[in-house]
Design a protein around this nucleic acid. Structure first.
Lengths: 218, 218
DNA sequence: TCGTCCAGGATTGTATACAAACGGTATTCA
DNA sequence: TGAATACCGTTTGTATACAATCCTGGACGA
């Protein structure tokens, strides 16, 4: 499906990047005009977005960009833990584990870099590395269902990360955690890899919750 | 969204129950007529179904009920393992674990029953029990995202189970596995519960693959 | 003054009309 | 005889017209 698909992906990006902020009402006619399509493919896009829980459809009232409650952050991180730990288990059982060796080296280098010199603007380059790790884990599963679910939850978390800026200290520690994940994956140490991922996910969650001013449910 | 939603659920059920067999082409006009709606809400339903991977949209050619390859069975069971193990972990950490005690007793009773007298038609009643366990696990997570993902994967497996009829022996062993899951969950033994679920899932998969004539990738 | 109810306007939900793309068939040419 | 191609019917993809629903503002009454 041509236009509907494109509109879907574009709106999805705008929502994840906060160009469409949580809570905004999506007027069908105006949106359709802005994107240069009719209401039909636009509604297709909204429907798909609602299934991703990026918009909420209120019958008779239309579509709203979903808001982000503290509970949702916790719940999405639980999903992430479930999917990423199992994904890395599959990677650890997989034959093609060499990639993780190279990634481990890179992450260690970045950890040292952060410790020595702080951040100063190198974040973009570092994020490219974390993207490579994410991709390697998703690919390593060899499971398209899992890949897509991982993509979903990662999108949600990308949107949520706007809630809390990452500190240099968190980046440094995170690099170390990533290195640990890569080492375990390369060696085929399934249990250790799963633990490393679980720890990393939970530390990330704690960092966000702390930054949000100490949520009640810690 | 009124009619689209209903059409979606109805078609979903027909696909899961094999009233619409894998591979059948879904003609929009004919389907819309049969269901008594216009093409617009019907297309909404097809779109949602495609996101569930229950139909595949071929651009320009229309919608087809997805076929079930052996690979898909394996992949869906991997998804199930990822989600159910984490779900039962959350249950084991949860305060409301009393339900699992009662369920454990019931499953033990059924295991004995199967051992003594075989099956003879009591399956429906037994499946109601397994449904109660599934519901208890989903509820016990307290996580709506996880609940929905569990529902998705369970639907897929319900459709796939048509591929292989369960044997009395498998039912008996399965009841024992369920009992083990319930006991661990009630006692809050997280690791044991996760292992029990993983074992159960993998045994179910092996049973299906065996019944399918010993798939190559065991 | 506060609450209720009604009317107007706007927006969503559904149906239908039109355009584009695809598949199948027959025909033509080597 | 076989393969390539052009044509036609069918089906999907998109736009638009119409109906039903919901929110807003204001007037009326208690």
């Amino acid at each position: 499906m041509g236009q509907g698909e494109q509109v879907y992906e574009r709106l999805r990006e705008e929502i994840v990047e906060w160009d469409l902020a949580p809570g905004t009402h999506l007027n069908e006619t105006r949106l359709a005009e802005r994107l240069g399509v009719s209401r039909t493919p636009l509604r297709e896009a909204l429907l798909r977005l609602s299934r991703d829980r990026l918009v909420r459809l209120s019958p008779g009232r239309g579509a709203f960009v979903t808001e982000i409650a503290l509970q949702d952050v916790v719940h999405q991180f639980q999903m992430r833990e479930a999917l990423e730990t199992h994904a890395v288990r599959l990677c650890a059982r997989n034959a093609e584990r060499a990639v993780f060796g190279a990634l481990a080296v890179d992450f260690l280098r970045w950890e040292e870099h952060f410790a020595r010199e702080g951040v100063h603007g190198a974040e973009t380059e570092y994020y490219a590395l974390t993207d490579r790790l994410d991709a390697a884990i998703a690919e390593g599963t060899g499971n398209p269902y899992l890949r897509e679910s991982l993509a979903d939850v990662r999108r949600h978390l990308r949107r949520m990360r706007r809630l809390a800026r990452r500190t240099p200290e968190r980046l440094r520690v995170g690099a170390g955690e990533h290195a640990r994940i890569c080492r375990a994956a390369r060696e085929g140490a399934e249990e250790e890899a799963a633990r490393a991922v679980a720890d990393h996910v939970n530390n990330s969650l704690r960092h966000i919750l702390d930054a949000l001013g100490g949520g009640a449910s810690r």
